[in-house]
Write a protein that binds this DNA or RNA. Structure first.
Lengths: 343, 343
DNA sequence: ATGAAAGCGCTAACAT
DNA sequence: ATGTTAGCGCTTTCAT
């Protein structure tokens, strides 16, 4: 078979018109079964593949979903959050017959010039944005007329559609757990407060203290950025105030806390209990040697990714429906760093 | 501005033909500067974006590069190898104005039915495949007429273009280092032997022993699969034969070894020295708590990704040139697990 | 149920 | 240096 295969040629070989072949390929009804079979046979015999560019041009759909990861997320690939998210998104794309276009921005310059490229016409059917923060230049993407879904509630865009976990309740659960273990001087290292996750986890901490009639002590609250290094420094700041427990708003930060406590010669959980958030250090990762294993709040990261795709596809299908706000639950995972019975 | 913006309309607004606008957009020479400026102004004013699908159809290029990660790579997202590779690839794509389409396969079924989708006409300009093994069903992609580049030398396809590190030399260096520290009973846990990396690292181990007149002891060689769990088991098999050092063909496996040694009450490096491969546990990751820090052979993972893109673009540009075989160097990173002076 | 025909918006060869 | 024109390969009305 020489010469490029086209609908026209397949039609000729099957003795039908190009339109009929197109209908067969796209599973339209109203095709005589016999004809359908004949066409399918020819397609199988020839190994014909429709030209995607032509389909896109004619149908105005490309089957491409974009995922944008802003540069500010330094942790992009120092921990497993984004890898898992990508895995969840990828799987959902496979299942729905879409293709994932991945945009990772490394510099502000890239963000500026690539934003236009991401949005160009006839390219993406929809867009998922992860890790936005307040004042992010990429927030401009939210104003596009293209279907967009954000992972992690975006601050300042109340009408944006998003998927997130119940950050406040997760933190509330973590801190309540520490309180139930008898801890009184519970410190926290917050996440970035220009992201909803940081604010809400902080609020969960405050709410838990208040509901259990514990005082809020500013000296026991340090600002972090979700990353390990700053949390290490923050933990060192905390120590003079003798916390008996630390709630870190991410596992990466909890690791920084563990490191600081080890450096200070304090034992976990005996001297200080530690609870993290995210569950990025389960047994099947490269991090089973962490001592002690980290009690944490698990986010269903892969499921968030899958949910993001499903929700985005729904937005594409029904663009005029009201904004979607999907909140997934978290789960307290008790390991040893909190000092709870672990049998 | 209403109605869809097209080249034609931009041309009308600028008082030129559609072809001239196209030339301006594509940076063709032979445009009067004044005209170019006028057209650019109109484009800026209107916010016009060329339609990608139409460009692709007419030019037969899409600007999309595919990255395929086979399902067999269980470690896809339990360690940071693939995340880093993706980062390197993404960055190079950004720099060259291409877009990365990511295909992660989770089941054999997906591999089967998606392979066709990956290869469909008018979709990808080229393809990067990572982590292929001998007998991989995805090897079929290598036979495509589309430009393909493999990361990690593919077994059984001597004419395939690939980017890899010098696996043999890296392993040779690691084991020679252990020998220079006085170790005599050096064990190894190999990687998958249906991948070149596994075979070649094993060969480097053997060559180092032989060049230093040390006997090869089959009892000190265990088969692994690059993953942690099997390495843990393998290390337990090794212990009765009293190795004084273990060369693990990946860092994930080295972590399994550390775990096994800890369980056996053996100290590292005093009782048994350990060297890994990959350098997936540097200080800036979530794994700084590993004790002792891992001596290892560093692969320039991000650079491999970038190199893969560059080489693939070169193949696209010159499809008839001979196959490319790019071998990048590795580097011995001495930390504490090998027992070398670490000051 | 099927065919004919009109684009989709662009690139590139050709003409001037 | 710029305009004219012929497709690129498909989807999708509109006829029949």
């Amino acid at each position: 078979m020489e010469g490029k295969l086209t609908l026209e040629k397949i039609g000729a070989l099957a003795g039908v018109s190009r339109a009929t072949v197109s209908r067969v390929i796209n599973n339209h009804p109203n095709i005589r079964e016999e004809v359908r079979q004949r066409v399918l046979d020819v397609i199988a015999d020839t190994g014909y593949q429709p030209n995607q560019a032509a389909r896109s041009l004619a149908s105005n759909r490309t089957g491409l979903l974009g995922l944008v990861i802003p540069r500010v997320i330094q942790a992009i690939f120092t921990d497993l959050y984004y890898p898992r998210l990508i895995q969840g998104i990828s799987q959902a794309c496979n299942e729905s017959g879409h293709t994932l276009a991945l945009f990772i921005f490394h510099t502000e310059e890239e963000e500026q010039q690539m934003a236009a490229q991401v949005m160009r016409q006839g390219f993406l059917d929809g867009l998922i944005i992860a890790g936005l923060h307040f004042d992010d230049p990429l927030n401009q993407l939210l104003l596009s007329e293209k279907p967009v879904l954000v992972i992690g509630e975006p601050l300042g865009y109340p009408t944006a559609s998003f998927v997130d976990v119940d950050n406040r309740l997760g933190a509330y659960t973590a801190v309540s757990h520490l309180i139930s273990l008898g801890h009184q001087r519970i410190a926290t290292i917050t996440g970035r407060l220009d992201m909803a996750a940081g604010q809400q986890r902080r609020q969960g901490y405050l709410d838990a203290l208040q509901d259990h009639n514990l005082p809020v002590n500013e000296q026991l609250m340090e600002a972090g950025d979700f990353e390990q290094e700053k949390a290490y420094q923050a933990a060192l700041q905390l120590l003079p105030h003798h916390p008996d427990a630390v709630f870190a708003a991410s596992d990466s930060m909890a690791l920084g806390v563990l490191r600081a406590l080890a450096d200070a010669g304090l034992r976990v959980p005996d001297d200080v209990a530690v609870v993290g958030y995210d569950d990025l250090t389960p047994e099947d990762t490269a991090v089973p040697l962490i001592n002690p294993p980290l009690t944490t709040i698990r986010q269903p990261i892969r499921r968030m990714g899958a949910q993001a795709v499903e929700t985005l596809l729904d937005i594409i299908k029904q663009p005029d429906a009201p904004p979607r706000r999907v909140i997934l639950p978290t789960e307290l995972i008790i390991r040893q760093s909190c000092g709870a019975d672990y049998s």
